[in-house]
Design a protein around this nucleic acid. Structure first.
Lengths: 336, 336
DNA sequence: CGTCGAATGTTAATCGTTTAATGATGCGAG
DNA sequence: CTCGCATCATTAAACGATTAACATTCGACG
């Protein structure tokens, strides 16, 4: 592969001159032309690795996510990648598949690669986040979807409280007084917030929360189905159910279809996250849609700013509004 | 950030010795110990960029895909990433969003980054693939999902003909004689093969193909819905419909739900690709499931082999069997 | 014409590693 | 005691770019 040295030799110029030309300095037209010719003839391709070594900027960003198999993560990642690419940065993907050790291992991995910054989707677990403190001094870090206690850095997330509040309030407005909520694990971040929104909506409308209507699982599809059944099969079942993540929503719909429960006549159902599914079901699913594109774009843009040295408002906490998409699965509470 | 030089200074050894230690050579225990201590104290982190420059191996693989928003691509990508990570390689994602210029631009981009290999999902278009010939000489290239004429390289794909054949044969076995097929654009690779499978199944069973039952769109969700309607609204409509990609399948199901057509009584429906959807619909969707995990794993492993210099069987063309998942949307042809 | 300053080029060191070639050290055998 | 051979370490030159600091060219102007 041709190097700058080769171009220099071919044109009779020095490597410094060629390098400058390549970096946008203007030369005498004669020389510029000669270099252009040499590039074409020798099929010169610049070596970003060498450049990175010298400048200590890799123009690569590490994105650390639980998995690409979940549309929530892959949609955000997609939008991140697109935004970074527009700034000429490449995206190094690392999934950690919710494995404990993998997360810190991969942060090391990324740091070794001299990434210029990291975007991390932490899953809330009791994990040792010292490593993130190390990141702190090294490269900018943006956390997506939730903050981590003790780590001072930018965070981009959706307004979980507001999202849940909005959905539950819609249900209350339709006359529902017994609203079940399907939540995720205690040790994750968002469930508590979504529950808080649920609570606030009740409070605002002077309703008490029946703890039996608050059920928790592991945010998986099967847990969605199982918890739905638990709610429905309890004494004094809810007239509406709010599922608070994508997987449980799919699972719950599965359960609903399985039992042939007709929505919204016999039950009102509010889901979470707006991917392919919600437009396909009949009746069309009412969901809280997190602004995935925007989350991705925002975190990438924020990181770019930090990488460029713009530390204004650090640490910034961006909370993006979710959309409440009322479609066909919620309706007035069924007459007894 | 501490460098090898610092470790050397701290321990009184030479950089060469430290480097060797770091690369697994054995030293006198005394020295090894000293280095380990120094690493801890100085918080040494190896610099993969410098290493790459010297060794001309980046241990990074570029993955070029149309988009991460499509579950087919993101599932394969996920599996690629996982497999590569196991070999200590990082994955650089580049989406080209089906834009013509972006594809070649991004290949350049990846080559500049000195990736050790490229996995590419080409969309079949009349695009100038000279650039891929350049790749040829530089780093190994694995094509996923389809080959490109004139480019001699490894290809991993699913058995499109067999997949379609299998699905259509199931329908024929149920007595269907008029089977509609929803295809993608002419200039993509797989539609022709899927049609071929459809044709072969007819041929085998002595059936003629009615060209009016073969409809083409752009493989989008709306095209799925529209083409379904076109088939159903034609004179002498089909008793079964086979949709040949994920988007059109979702779109067609949307249309089916919209019209309240009951499956499989009034219509048998065979879809393509097995993502979240198919398990959620009631009745459960019968689909041809491409082995996405396996496609990802296989291409990554094959690329790793090439990167390691194992050129056995080059160029290799791997065709992976799709699974025919017969579930509830197909049934015997309706009695008139 | 000589001089000066802007514009254009060059020299050479450097980024943090790796690695051939070479050097030192120690140990057993004769 | 010395030779020879492993074994362990070191020297120093790369890898391909960038970039201060310095050198040259050239035209304008007094």
């Amino acid at each position: 592969m041709a190097t700058i040295k080769d171009l220099a030799a071919r044109t009779g110029l020095s490597t410094a001159t060629v390098s400058k030309y390549l970096n946008g300095f203007t030369l005498k037209e004669r020389n510029a032309l000669a270099i252009r010719e040499a590039i074409a003839e020798l099929k010169y391709r610049k070596n970003d690795i060498a450049r990175s070594l010298k400048t200590s900027k890799s123009r690569a960003i590490g994105v650390l996510i639980p998995t690409l198999e979940n549309p929530f993560y892959s949609a955000i990642t997609s939008s991140i990648e697109r935004t970074l690419m527009e700034s000429g940065f490449s995206t190094i993907i690392c999934s950690y598949y919710s494995e404990l050790h993998a997360e810190r291992e991969k942060i090391e991995f990324l740091l070794n690669k001299m990434v210029d910054g990291i975007i991390h989707f932490p899953l809330n677990r009791t994990v040792d986040y010292d490593i993130l403190k190390q990141v702190d001094g090294t490269v900018p870090l943006v956390l997506v979807d939730r903050p981590i206690e003790g780590i001072e850095c930018d965070v981009v997330m959706s307004d979980n409280v507001g999202a849940a509040f909005g959905a539950v309030e819609r249900l209350i407005a339709l006359g529902h007084r017994r609203i079940g909520i399907i939540l995720g694990p205690d040790d994750q971040y968002s469930p508590a917030l979504r529950l808080e929104g649920y609570r606030l909506a009740h409070e605002k409308h002077g309703l008490a929360v029946d703890p039996r209507l608050v059920v928790r699982g592991d945010y998986s599809m099967t847990s969605g189905r199982d918890l739905l059944f638990r709610l429905l099969d309890g004494e004094n079942p809810p007239t509406a159910v709010f599922s608070t993540n994508y997987e449980t929503t799919v699972g719950a719909m599965l359960g609903i279809n399985e039992r042939g429960i007709s929505l919204p006549e016999r039950l009102s159902f509010f889901g979470f996250d707006d991917f392919a599914l919600s437009t396909v079901f009949r009746p069309r699913l009412s969901v809280v849609a997190q602004p995935v594109r925007l989350i991705g774009k925002t975190s990438a843009e924020l990181l770019m700013r930090r990488v460029r040295g713009d530390l204004a408002d650090f640490p910034l906490r961006v909370s993006l509004d979710a959309e409440i998409l009322v479609r066909e699965t919620i309706g007035p509470v069924a007459a007894e």
